[in-house]
């Protein structure tokens, strides 16, 4: 790890001002929350910031509040706290499960929801200092001709990472919004709009500008009659990122779908919302045939590479299973 200076900040405002100033002075800085993800990038010398702006010393950014409109979760709340929160368990369908199946207990105890949503890709070419890949300012995405068993089948190009967060797809399926605080003040946007496809900008995974911080996640109460389903495929029951994950929320009445959210993880550079498939499902009776069709539509347009064809079938099966479990 390269030497760096750590700055403990006391407020979001201080952090924002400092980040802006360092940016203007052309000094490299990274926000750090739990540090569980950033630290590894620094050890591998993929990230070599001169400054770390430590958010953990900001009081009052760690909370889970239940209000009439829904839940508000502070960016510094740990994954374990979300997993174990009684209200979250009872009311937010699968969010506790998604948080609880991420990484490992130690990482969840330290890792925050803000850091989880903002984590950098776990692509092995990106993570290795030996590969000057596209996302690090190099010329090519090494996954294209390399070992791409875990890479994107949807939304890829020119970079083929998959977004690593387990909580983000689950939160998008739940209709979450996030609050961003920056030099221009606060704004609240749907989480879905936070992520950036590589064809828009292949050097970043989200829209955060220098000086901006994710400060809160807001999740509405699921509508009455909603059922959720979450499953994460992995080789081992701890540590592994999702090979493919599915988060679905289906609101139905008498077996007929009123509204549906279908979001896939592990298949695309962003949490992948299957909007066409959702639209198809609305108003239909949820049975095996429909579920199969929804799977087909969701994976329509998938462009697998040599080692990741299997993800298509896996994702289709998961969607079918999810929908049949939702009515």
């Amino acid at each position: 790890m390269k030497s760096f200076a750590n700055i403990d900040v006391k407020s979001v405002r201080e952090a924002v001002t400092l980040l802006q100033k360092l940016h203007q002075e052309k000094k490299s800085a990274e926000i750090v929350s739990g540090g569980t993800e950033l630290l590894q990038l620094m050890k591998d010398r993929v990230a070599t910031p001169q400054y770390l702006i430590n958010l953990k010393t900001i009081p009052g950014l760690n909370y889970i509040k239940e209000e009439r409109s829904g839940f508000r979760i502070g960016a510094l709340t740990t994954l374990t706290e979300i997993e174990e929160h009684k209200g979250v368990r009872e009311k937010l369908l699968f969010l506790s499960q998604a948080a609880g199946e991420a990484a490992s207990p130690q990482l969840r105890n330290a890792g925050t929801i803000g850091g989880n949503i903002c984590q950098r890709p776990f692509c092995w070419y990106f993570r290795s200092a030996n590969f000057p890949c596209l996302r690090k300012g190099g010329g090519i995405c090494y996954a294209v001709a390399g070992d791409n068993r875990y890479h994107a089948i949807l939304g890829g190009g020119p970079s083929y990472i998959v977004h690593p967060s387990d909580t983000a797809p689950a939160l998008i399926a739940l209709g979450a919004r996030i609050k961003i605080t920056g030099p221009a003040g606060e704004k609240t946007i749907p989480l879905e709009k936070f992520f950036v496809l590589p064809q828009v900008d292949y050097k970043r995974e989200n829209i955060l500008q220098p000086g901006e911080i994710l400060t809160e996640v807001q999740i509405p109460h699921p509508k009455p009659g909603s059922k959720g389903f979450y499953h994460k495929v992995r080789e081992r029951q701890a540590w592994d990122h999702a090979i493919v994950s599915v988060s679905t929320v289906v609101q139905s009445k008498g077996g007929i779908c009123q509204d549906a959210h279908v979001v896939l993880g592990g298949v695309a550079p962003i949490p992948w919302r299957a909007a066409k498939a959702e639209a198809f499902l609305r108003g239909k009776k949820v049975d095996e045939g429909t579920a199969r069709q929804v799977g087909e539509i969701a994976l329509d347009g998938a462009r697998p590479m040599k080692d990741n064809v299997y993800k298509i079938g896996m994702a289709k099966s998961l969607i079918q299973r999810a929908l049949l479990a939702s009515v």
Binding site: S104, F122, G146, A238, D240
Partner: peptide, 21 residues
């Protein structure tokens, strides 16, 4: 990576030793 002989999973996260679960 068989193009250059670089191991892609030289860490305990991606090299899949079984966990207690």
């Amino acid at each position: 990576d068989s193009r250059n002989g670089i191991q892609l999973n030289a860490n305990l996260h991606e090299y899949g030793m079984p966990t207690s679960l």
